[in-house]
Amino acid sequence: MEQTQTNQEGLNVLSLFDGISCAKLALEKSGIKINKYYSSEICPHALAIQNHHYSGDTNFIQLGDVCKIEGIDLASEIDLIVFGSPCTNLSSINPVDRRGLEGTESKLFYEAKRIIRDIYLFAPIKKKVYFLMENVASMTAKDRDIITSELSEIFYDVKLVKINSADLAPANRRRLYWTNIPNVGVPEPKPIKYQDIVVNGYVDKEKANVLLGSNCTLTNGIFRYYKMNIGNLIYKDKKFADQPTEQKLLEYPFILHKSGYIGKSRLGFDEYDFPNGCYRLPSVLESERLMTIPDGYVSDVPKVSKTNKLKAIGLAMTVDVIAHLVSPLKKI
């Protein structure tokens, strides 16, 4: 039987494309002790959020650009590698450049593979290295199979699981997860709804749509919301929220006109106001909740704009899903 290391002293973790360090939040939530956490990230807004929480933590180590990391330098330490390489050119929602793993951003998967391969090859004998990769479920079957094949060149025990975050969160987020963590599977659904997490107002869906880097507008966003099923809205009145879609689309232009809102400026409006008289967008706090990120983790960070906070959350991993997938490591 293959020998594996214990995690009594904590795992040493490498998180590539780390964003706002949701992998760290997930490990902590699952009760797994972290010894050292190596973070590779270059987005200044994500780094500002990281620094707000971890700038004084000597066990939180920022490595910068994934392209400049040498896996051999970390091979003696790393127990677990977590990453979600850019989905930009893989996602079906990209109408401009869907070249998949050949695309400008999504080809960074191969940088992750390079690092993982070197960590695996140069790890101490009998040391088990675990990994967890996340990416969009809407990628083509060709790209999905290429990723599986590339990872299987390194690990003999690669498993692929498809999970919709809606099983554990109040928002949809269909993702593929590749891992060699044993005993992983689809979680038992939790009865949490979109309406449960809103501060005020009413929604007309049981689960929110997937969070993206941008949302609908407060002028004509309602049409995008229904015709393209993109973005998330919260309505001022329950009666309006409960109406059929066609009736909402008929009534909304009159409500907008009556409100006087023309979309030139949101100055003077709070996140929880309804400036167009009909609906608002989820706040930063509510967006955290949609991704099962702890309240205030992003929303309370100073010197990062609301727009950039929402972008960072839209690019994050669903914390509770990652916690579910890594939880078997507690028994190893």
Rank of each mutant, 00 (worst) to 15 (best):
Q3V: 06
T4H: 12
Q5H: 07
Q5C: 03
L16H: 09
D18K: 07
A23W: 02
K33I: 08
I34G: 04
K36Q: 13
Y37K: 11
Y38C: 09
S39W: 11
A46G: 00
I49K: 02
H53V: 09
S55V: 06
S55P: 01
L63D: 08
I69R: 08
I72N: 07
I72K: 14
I78W: 15
D79W: 13
F83A: 15
G84W: 11
G84V: 08
S85Q: 04
T88K: 03
T88Y: 02
L90F: 07
S91T: 13
I93L: 13
D97E: 13
G100W: 01
G103M: 01
E105I: 02
K107P: 02
R114N: 03
R117Q: 08
D118L: 09
D118F: 06
L121R: 11
A123R: 14
A123P: 01
K126P: 01
K127E: 08
K128F: 04
L132T: 02
M133V: 06
N135I: 00
V136A: 01
V136Y: 01
S149Q: 08
I154E: 01
L160H: 06
V161D: 00
V161N: 00
K162F: 03
N164W: 08
R175I: 01
I181P: 06
P189F: 07
K190T: 11
P191Q: 09
K193S: 10
I197H: 08
N200P: 01
G201R: 10
L211R: 01
L212D: 03
G213F: 04
C216K: 08
I222D: 12
F223D: 15
R224C: 15
Y226G: 09
K227S: 15
K227H: 15
M228R: 13
K239T: 14
F240M: 14
F240I: 15
A241C: 10
A241S: 11
T245P: 05
T245Q: 15
Y252L: 06
Y252V: 01
P253G: 10
I255L: 03
K258N: 13
S259N: 10
G260F: 10
F269N: 14
E271Y: 12
N276R: 13
C278P: 11
C278D: 08
P282T: 05
L285F: 07
M291N: 02
D295T: 13
D295H: 12
G296D: 12
G296N: 10
Y297R: 02
V301F: 08
K303V: 06
V304T: 00
G314P: 00
G314K: 00
M317T: 09
V319H: 07
V321W: 10
I322W: 06
A323M: 05
H324F: 11
V326M: 14
V326Y: 15
S327C: 08
L329F: 10
